[in-house]
Design a protein around this nucleic acid. Structure first.
Length: 605
DNA sequence: CCGGGCTTGT
DNA sequence: ACAAGCC
């Protein structure tokens, strides 16, 4: 509308309002969960406390003037009768949150979580179907309408949004009936507006905005910081450049702004300031990482660190088990005390871990496995904190990441092959020593590229001998130099690719005893697996597509996608072993998550 | 001790 | 790996 003709080319998304987006926000989520757990809290001013902060409170408490994220003392002063419930353990909230999401997913598969208490739902398709089936909202919008409807948009969005408002009302009713939670909803043609308008009428209500009211809504925003996407830092930068109001941002054409935030960011923010947002609702799925952290006054002893980590680890395992997936990496986060830089500056390090730690089942960690994880954790910790000098931490966190695609439960055969035990344990070994094996750490792409000219045999260590973690050599030196040297890289592929047995005995015996132990330990579940897979003597009767290392009978029973993956993983290994060109295998579809395949292919022949 | 998680972009 | 964003 306010766009010029020339800009109409710019995808008509914003002038056509084709989508219908609903934003659902549970009212004071933590407080509602606590009130469900203990109904006596309903009529009292309730605050949810995390450490020194009242992170949210019920509406009774809000009448005293309490706001979100108030300091404990401040809240107590406003409301001496405030009842406090600790909310540091998010378990119940997380659980309720996923119930909410489940309810919403019954309406549309396009549900995106934002934190624990908010969801975006793209109901465009649902609305279209309803309209096609002759559903008539009677032009009535359920709940509130933002401002006045001054004009009738030609694109038909009024109809769509009114149907959307009915769906939103239905969603809220179901959330209340099934879970006992009240919430707000915002209905609009994009995510930004849906979220902004959601909060217009506050508890337990919903609001729809029509395109004609958008300029009014945006102009009504006093603080630029209120626009989702403009956080603390960005608003500071904007303010320092004299951009304080929404209209300031709309009219900004500053060059210093571009250089401060980058061209793309500025363009995005400017569009936001007009209420334009073409970002999609991205179905959330499972989280990319699962972690826990704990803040405290002070930790300055190594033993305290270990203690804390073990506690975190134990709690984390419960979450991991619940999730069901197996992580491929672990990350440790610290916050060092810093009086000057009070802004929580965090530091983190991560490393890959052997999935075999979690075998045969991911249920409970064996004491041994726990020790191993703690070792990894501490190694990461030492990278950040030099414990030979005094230190002062105010936070410790542990998180698991890099989850395997298809794992545990059904069909982790591929992951078994990909993360072959013997190879994996060598990978672990690599982590504990600085030696020729270390360059496996560099990315597959690096390996391939650098090998391009050099060709065969000795895969040269990458020139960038990056962080020479000297502590790694000094500390935790469980292997001798000869141990390290005895692991000839050429033996690794042998170990893996010998199809007669899980691995070659002679090669195995040459390994350091520590490694042998680990391999043996990881083999606990191997008999079943080898039987099931029928990994046996060169059964090389090439039966169609079935890889020779897999029993054809078993193979045929597998889901086709698993079959495909097996073929691919076999091909990539086999090709690299028999032919040459490391290139070919890296170009294979499935990029191996494990750089070992790259390593194997580039170092062997 | 501005909480405790999580995601995304550089 | 980190900064910044979201709740």
């Amino acid at each position: 509308m306010e766009d010029e003709f020339g800009q109409l080319l710019d995808p008509a998304l914003e002038t056509m309002h084709q989508r219908v987006i609903i934003h659902i926000d549970i009212d004071c989520f933590y407080a509602q969960v606590e009130m469900l757990k203990n109904p006596e809290l309903r009529n009292q001013p309730l605050g949810i406390q995390q450490k020194n902060i009242v992170v949210t409170c019920n509406y009774v408490a809000r009448q005293f003037g309490l706001k979100k994220c108030m300091l404990l003392a401040e809240a107590k002063e406003l409301c001496p009768s405030l009842v406090l419930v600790k909310g540091e353990d998010l378990f119940d909230y997380r659980q309720m949150s996923s119930k909410v999401t489940s309810v919403l997913q019954k309406f549309s598969p396009l549900v995106e979580k934002l934190g624990l208490d908010e969801n975006f739902i793209d109901v465009t398709q649902v609305v279209a179907e309803k309209l096609q089936n002759g559903f008539n909202s009677g032009q009535n919008i359920a709940g509130h309408v933002y401002s006045d409807v001054t004009e009738n948009c030609m694109c038909g969005c009024f109809n769509r949004l009114s149907v959307g408002s009915v769906i939103a009302a239905d969603m809220r009713a179901q959330i209340y009936e099934e879970l006992g939670l009240t919430c707000c909803a915002g209905i609009a043609h994009n995510k930004l507006l849906a979220k902004l308008v959601c909060g217009v009428q506050k508890p337990n209500q919903q609001t729809t905005i029509l395109p004609c009211s958008v300029p009014g809504l945006m102009a009504g925003i006093q603080n630029i910081r209120k626009i989702p996407g403009i956080g603390h830092r960005t608003s500071e930068i904007l303010q320092s450049l004299g951009i304080c109001s929404v209209s300031d941002l709309q009219n900004s054409s500053d060059k210093s702004l571009q250089q401060a935030l980058g061209h793309d960011v500025v363009e995005r923010l400017k569009k936001l300031s007009f209420g334009h947002d073409d970002s999609m609702v991205r179905p959330s799925g499972k989280p990319q990482s699962i972690g826990l952290e704990d803040g405290f006054r002070k930790i300055s002893l190594e033993s305290e660190v270990k203690e804390k980590c073990l506690l975190l680890l134990q709690r984390l395992m419960a979450l991991l088990v619940e999730d069901g997936r197996i992580p491929g990496a672990i990350r440790v986060t610290v916050r060092k005390y810093n009086s000057a830089n009070r802004q929580s500056h965090r530091e983190s390090r991560q490393c890959n871990i052997s999935p075999s730690i979690f075998r045969p089942k991911i249920t409970v960690l064996s004491p041994n496995a726990r020790q191993k994880l703690l070792m990894s954790i501490m190694k990461l910790f030492y990278k950040m904190v030099n414990i030979s000098k005094p230190f002062h931490l105010t936070l410790l966190g542990i998180a698991f990441t890099k989850f395997q695609e298809r794992c545990s439960g059904k069909g982790s055969i591929t992951s078994f092959l990909m993360n072959d035990i013997s190879v994996q344990s060598v990978l672990d070994f690599r982590n504990m020593s600085t030696s020729a094996v270390e360059e496996m750490e560099c990315s597959p792409a690096d390996n391939v590229c650098q090998d391009r000219s050099g060709s065969e045999s000795e895969h040269e260590p990458s020139p960038k001998k990056t962080r020479s973690d000297f502590w790694r050599i000094r500390r935790k030196r469980s292997f001798t130099e000869s141990d390290v040297d005895s692991i000839n890289k050429m033996e690794v592929p042998e170990l893996r690719l010998n199809t007669g047995e899980p691995f070659d005995k002679e090669v195995f015996q040459k390994l350091p005893s520590v490694i042998q132990e680990e391999v043996m330990e990881s083999l606990v579940d191997l008999p079943q697996l080898t039987n099931r897979l029928g990994i046996s003597e060169s059964d090389n009767t090439s039966t169609g597509v079935c890889p020779p290392n897999v029993d054809p009978t078993v193979f045929r029973e597998l889901p086709s996608d698993v079959q495909q993956e097996l073929v691919q993983s076999w091909n990539s290994v086999n090709k690299s072993h028999t032919t040459q060109s490391p290139q070919t295998n890296s170009s294979g579809r499935k990029p191996c998550q494990n750089s070992i395949l790259q390593y194997v292919s580039s170092s062997s022949k």
